[in-house]
């Protein structure tokens, strides 16, 4: 028996929106710890890792650890039936091949029951070691999103360079080139507007903008984004989900030949 209840149902809608352009199908891992997922895009260049801890749910019951294979696109379709202020309950029984979503309006005057077929998905889990990163940039997620959108109109790749001067995002394309530098700014009264750079070593890495731009679909989940970089390692772009967990994206860098 697996059952979880999330009063802030829009959160689940936003989480699925933040995954659906990257991943087609995924196994959701259910355990007493919470509801989690690790999935790669079809070309194995990017990976998304989601964690929603059990304590963050109003009700969470998971009798045994198991995985539910779901089509993310179909899940997004089902969640379209929920209003933003609905309470969402997800239920699955042992040995069944369906999952039930229940959407309740806050005043309890409308209840939707949606059943979705589960899938068998062969997926490779990657072991991601806890690493010390050479540079960690924390900045407003909307700022990061608009930088990625702006640069992707000029070029296909973004070079992220962290130095004592700040973090520079640059691109080059047929029509020209552009670079945007953000300096450390921790003096702001609003912590969500701060840009904080922790640097052990200067780092320069280049990434495909098409993936990074997909990651910024998670912008509505968190006011701040954390970008962790080390030379010749995948970047980690993390959005914290308040009181529940996080969504982390990993992207392999471009390699100079």
């Amino acid at each position: 028996m697996f059952e979880l209840r999330l009063v802030q149902g829009s959160l689940l809608k936003r989480v699925i929106d933040a995954i659906k352009d990257l991943v087609n199908d995924a196994n959701f891992d259910c355990s007493s710890t919470g509801f989690s997922l690790q999935a790669m895009d079809s070309s194995h260049v990017a990976l998304v890792a989601l964690l929603l801890r059990s304590e963050g749910f109003e009700h969470f019951r998971c009798d045994r650890t198991f995985s539910m294979g779901m089509s993310i696109a179909n899940m997004a379709k089902m969640l379209k039936c929920a209003s933003n202020d609905d309470i969402i309950t997800i239920k699955a029984d042992d040995g069944t091949d369906t999952v039930t979503f229940m959407f309740e309006s806050p005043s309890q005057d409308k209840i939707s029951d949606i059943e979705m077929k589960l899938m068998d998905i062969d997926s490779d889990h990657l072991g991601i070691p806890d690493a010390e990163y050479e540079a960690i940039v924390r900045m407003p997620s909307t700022e990061f999103g608009s930088i990625c959108t702006s640069l992707s109109t000029i070029g296909d790749t973004v070079t992220i360079a962290v130095s004592k001067q700040g973090v520079t995002f640059s691109t080059k394309g047929d029509i020209g080139s552009g670079n945007i530098t953000c300096r450390q700014n921790s003096s702001t009264e609003k912590p969500e507007e701060a840009t904080i750079i922790e640097m052990k070593e200067p780092v320069v890495l280049t990434f495909a903008l098409k993936y990074i731009t997909t990651f910024t679909k998670a912008t509505s989940l968190s006011s701040q984004v954390t970008i962790s970089l080390s030379s010749d390692m995948p970047v980690v772009v993390e959005y914290k989900i308040a009181e529940m967990g996080h969504i982390r994206y990993y992207l392999a860098p471009k390699i100079e030949e």
């Binding site: 260049v45 490779d124 392999a252 471009k254 100079e256």
Partner: peptide
């Protein structure tokens, strides 16, 4: 010139 790396080059399957 640059090529796109794959994640398996960095993280091992479990």
């Amino acid at each position: 010139k640059s090529s796109q790396g794959r994640l398996e080059a960095f993280f091992k399957p479990t």
